[in-house]
Design a protein around this nucleic acid. Structure first.
Lengths: 165, 165
DNA sequence: GCCTAAAACTTCAGGCTTGAAATAACAGGT
DNA sequence: ACCTGTTATTTCAAGCCTGAAGTTTTAGGC
């Protein structure tokens, strides 16, 4: 119990290394993702005076000229409702988006980019794409499709502990 | 093979799609990583009453019976010094690690797991490896090595904006 | 119309994270 | 011994994030 060693060399002679390799893959994923995120966050802060969460919100709204409800926004970004409340509040304070009432449902809020917000995001988006292209420059064209396909299979379906309860 | 690529006579004619693909790869990386992180964080919280940052600190210290200095710890985990201060404070409060003076340098702090900390991590580590193995169960054995190799090339070397200044 | 359950948000406490500023201690030169 | 610059660490403000609890409004059943 004190050391995570391969316990049963008899039957699981091949299963153990594979699980180790999966763990290694996971650590590399984390490492790579965090390195790039750190880079983007830093430059977003120093050169664009913004943050990744703000960028994500602007990006989601940019393709929706009519805006989104708070709950749609949080579902799309996969963050909690309360989280979106705060980010939207700050972005609205900065003049990049506006909150509108939803006709027929006084509980709901529709949130939409202002013109300033559209212009703001357009500038950041071009920078962002170029920057990501550069940071992933190591990956050649023919490697992209397979890598995308592989990652698309991770974290989606029911790899639940209970095989499908 | 899947995309009918013309032979790109012009310079920018191929650069654009590749950069789009790199962006797509980045978004998939983010998506997959966040999905798994969310899963692990949730179960770590509900089933082990802990968090990912705490787990990371315990993991780093587990392989170092003599402990680590605060600065070594933050360098290893690639987070700020101030961040580590807080996490270590909480873990020490919970009795899982202890802070010792460093002989010959009264500025420095050595941090080491207690016996309770070792036992605590040993339990979580087995769970963690099994859980990651399950969450990445979609990835077959023969895909692991190439994927690991590809990710190892991301986020490391100088893909800096200034090509080598 | 009234009641209850559900939905859309917000608020809050607690924790994580960073970058900047503050403290304390060391190291080297004079 | 005294400065000066550097190193190790903590402190702090601000933001991000979650899950839980609270508010207001809607929808459905009666």
């Amino acid at each position: 119990m004190s050391a995570p060693e391969p316990r049963t060399p008899d039957r699981a002679e091949e299963a153990a290394p594979v699980s180790k390799q999966r763990l290694r893959l996971w650590l590399r994923m984390l490492e790579a993702t965090r390195a790039i995120e750190a880079r983007l966050r830093d430059e977003l802060r120093t050169e664009h005076d913004s943050t990744l969460p703000r960028f994500d919100v602007l990006a989601a709204l940019y393709r929706r000229p009519d805006g989104l409800r708070m709950s749609e926004l949080s579902a799309m970004l996969k963050v909690s409702n309360g989280n979106v409340t705060g980010i939207v509040e700050r972005l609205a304070g900065e003049g990049y988006l506006e909150r509108l009432p939803v006709e027929g449902d006084r509980r709901a809020m529709r949130v939409r980019l202002t013109e300033a917000g559209r212009a703001r995001f357009a500038g950041m988006a071009a920078w962002h794409e170029a920057r990501v292209d550069d940071l992933l420059g190591n990956i050649d064209a023919e490697e992209l499709d397979p890598a995308i396909a592989l990652l698309a299979r991770i974290g989606r379906d029911g790899n639940d502990r209970d095989g499908g309860a």
